[in-house]
Design a protein around this nucleic acid. Structure first.
Lengths: 115, 115
DNA sequence: TTTTTATACCTCGAGCTTCTACATATTAGT
DNA sequence: ACTAATATGTAGAAGCTCGAGGTATAAAAA
């Protein structure tokens, strides 16, 4: 067991979804699988988080979707990035980087202050 | 201009607060100031986030507080970490590290897949 | 053949955090 | 006398995540 259970901080899921879709059209179910595989199970995406997130992103015109057949012959909704979505991905990725750099500074604080 | 405005993802504020307090007793107002200074303005902590967070952490017995005088002669609530709080800080810091490593893997994905 | 598992989509409601705005009080500066 | 900074606090709105449930098809196992 040792359930890792690393609940995603609010907002980061959108970034991860945009990133996966940026690599090529995929359907929702596959997005969740890739995130889990690439992150080695650290990032887990329940369907109750995944689908609402996809709909949000679609409503904001970051994503567009078409129904197509998967390799295994089932109908699925394939998402792709819009131009707006690509810009959003860049913005969110930059923002994320700024944030983790800032948090690194904070977590790296020692009593002396300097290092 | 170019207001940075980097809303903290849910959950990370607790970690940052615990870290600052771990360096020595401080009052709430000073915690917010240090976070902004050390992060060079990237992390901004509005009062409506700060005080509820402190109360949450106190209710969970991660923090304890005493009223004391500041250097400038005002009464303020000084927080310190409990033993439980120190453990929580370690756990959350480790969890945060796992998460950003995982997200790094995802954001680093290229079309090739491997690297 | 019947049942289970995996694929693939979806919604609802609870729970939690964050933030804007407001409210209070004291001290220092102009 | 007024403004800004210090210092704490609450209330309400808005947002995201997640568990639990529902629908449907196809493959694999029993």
């Amino acid at each position: 067991m040792t359930a890792p259970k690393s609940d995603l901080p609010q907002g980061t899921l959108d970034l991860l979804i945009l990133k996966v879709i940026a690599l090529g059209p995929v359907h929702g179910y596959a997005i969740a699988q890739r995130l889990e595989q690439v992150s080695r199970g650290v990032v887990q995406v329940p369907e109750g988080s995944l689908y609402p997130a996809l709909h949000r992103l679609e409503n904001r015109d970051f994503l567009a979707a078409d129904w197509k057949e998967t390799e295994t012959g089932r109908e699925a909704k394939f998402y792709r990035l819009t131009r707006k979505g690509r810009k959003q991905l860049e913005a969110e990725a930059a923002s994320w980087q700024r944030l983790i750099d800032a948090i690194s500074l904070i977590l790296g604080m020692a009593d002396g202050g300097a290092r």
